[in-house]
């Protein structure tokens, strides 16, 4: 039983990070119909933000702020430089643009910073753990789970209670109508990118704290999983993205924990098969989006 609880904590910790990344993807997709493949690089920029702060010996809160700020800046800059010019372009053009940005940024990281991973040293206290009954919980996974929940709660309040939040939800449902009502499109889109950058930044801080290093490909793999999560949850559906994130995290951890080792090489295949099985039963995802252009 302790073993199951322990693995559940692991699943929540990993699923939370996927959920934040998936939510960032879903926010942008729901408004501009862009599947942003460069989202992983926004996360990587966040990781380098943390790294830069630790190199300069800044205290932890500033390092966290530096990582989050770097990711938000990268997301907003990306929108301003690349995606604003492509507003109204087809889904495919946007997709290819995002691929291009992703590749360019990866090469810039490799040649401008280092092809090697850069170590991120955090205070020993953060690497510690504590006991709850018979189970041991790490400090960082705990912070990770709590932060994820707070971030998701904060985002829900923002989307439901603030004017910009409401405008964003309205844009997700009918962008043209929103513009006709006189809401400035640029501001809503920029806010969507900033939010997705914020979530990617928080995810980057959690990720680097748990993994201890940042490299040019850091964001690629978790964001790949987050894509699966958004599709599973229902493309464009915000609550679906969160649910999908936790689902993928849980399948990944539990398949490692409970499958016999001989099946381990098939773990990714098993995760993806589960996703296909779910989509066969619910083709629009776990929580279908209100309105979606399916290509």
């Amino acid at each position: 039983m302790d073993y199951v609880i322990q693995q559940t904590v692991n699943a929540l910790s990993l699923g939370g990070i996927y959920a934040m990344l998936a939510l960032g993807l879903a926010i942008v997709f729901s408004i501009v119909r862009l599947i942003n493949f460069a989202h992983g690089e926004i996360m990587t920029v966040g990781g380098y933000g943390v790294f830069a702060a630790t190199v300069f010996g800044l205290p932890i809160p500033l390092a966290v702020a530096s990582g989050v700020f770097a990711a938000v800046f990268a997301a907003v800059a990306m929108e301003r430089v690349a995606f604003r010019a492509m507003r109204g372009a087809s889904v495919v053009s946007l997709l290819i643009t995002s691929f291009a940005i992703s590749e360019i940024l990866k090469v810039l990281f490799q040649n401008g910073i280092s092809a090697r991973p850069k170590p991120i040293q955090l205070p020993a206290a953060l690497s510690g753990s504590y006991e709850v009954g018979a189970i041991t919980v790490g400090v960082i996974p705990t912070i990770s789970i709590v932060t994820t929940l707070l971030a998701l709660l904060g985002l829900t309040l923002f989307l439901r209670r603030t004017e910009t939040g409401m405008a964003m939800r309205a844009a997700a449902e009918d962008f043209e109508m929103l513009r006709l009502l006189g809401v400035r499109a640029d501001r809503v889109v920029a806010a969507a990118f900033a939010l997705s950058g914020l979530l990617a930044g928080i995810a980057a801080v959690m990720w680097t704290a748990q993994r201890g290093s940042v490299d040019p490909l850091m964001g690629f793999f978790p964001v790949l999983k987050a894509f699966i999560a958004t599709v599973l949850g229902g493309l464009g559906s915000l609550s679906g993205a969160i649910l999908g994130g936790f689902f993928v995290g849980a399948v990944e951890v539990f398949s490692q924990a409970f499958l016999p080792d001989s099946l381990s090489p098939y773990r990714d295949a098993i995760v993806l098969s589960t996703v296909i099985a779910v989509l066969l039963v619910r083709p629009d995802g776990l929580v279908p989006a209100v309105k979606v252009d399916r290509s």
Binding site: Y3, Q6, Q7, V9, N10, S13, L14, G138, P141, Q210, L217, F221, P222, K225, G249, E252, V253, F254, Q256, A257
Partner: peptide, 10 residues
Amino acid sequence: NQPDFSAIVT
């Protein structure tokens, strides 16, 4: 490039 090692550690 496995995202998470907590299950192995457990």
